[in-house]
């Protein structure tokens, strides 16, 4: 399995992280010492998460979200699965800015993912404001033939947006 790695960039009162590899018992999640206001984490290069990694994540994100506003970007399916399943994986004050929705074409035996973006395609419920998500059960793409079907159980995948 690929080793968990972190790229960090501080930009004023924002810190940008890029996580890659496998989130497991050996993953060293970063410590923030700078005086910042927001934490932005790009998760597109995260490949796997195991149960030990989930434990480390929950231990890390809970206090982080109490101190900073945290934004997740380009969340892959493995992250959204845990967001939906594990209580505490996406605590308060943590926002998903964008996430991938996988599609599959049985005819081509090919996968494709589309990126949904906050406000344009979805919104997390906040207070009395309900959440929403705009997605299609099937899609076609200009560059390749065949019909692509959403490769998740919608009710399960978009649950964190509390869309029935």
């Amino acid at each position: 399995m690929a080793v968990f790695q972190v790229q960090k960039k501080v930009d004023g009162d924002l810190v940008h992280f890029e996580f890659s590899g496998s989130l497991d018992e050996d993953a060293k999640l970063p410590v923030i010492t700078e005086k910042i206001r927001e934490v932005h984490i790009d998760l597109r290069q995260l490949k796997t998460i195991n149960s030990c990694g989930i434990r480390e994540w929950v231990k890390w994100i809970q206090p982080l979200s109490q101190t900073y506003e945290v934004h997740f970007h380009c969340c892959p399916k493995i992250v959204i699965d845990q967001v939906n399943m594990v209580s505490g994986f996406l605590p308060k004050n943590v926002y998903v800015e964008s996430f991938y929705v996988p599609y599959y074409c049985e005819e081509n035996d090919a996968d494709r993912s589309i990126l949904l973006e906050r406000e344009r395609d979805f919104r997390q419920p906040m207070g009395s404001n309900p959440g929403f998500v705009n997605f299609q059960e099937t899609m076609t793409f200009d560059d390749v033939g065949g019909e692509y079907e959403i490769d998740v159980i919608s009710a399960k995948y978009f649950k964190f947006l509390k869309v029935s």
Binding site: N84, M85, V86, S87, G88, I153, A155, K156, K159
Partner: peptide, 10 residues
């Protein structure tokens, strides 16, 4: 039908 109407901590 997903049995995920409620979720609790581990």
């Amino acid at each position: 039908v997903l049995l995920n109407e409620v979720n609790n901590p581990r």
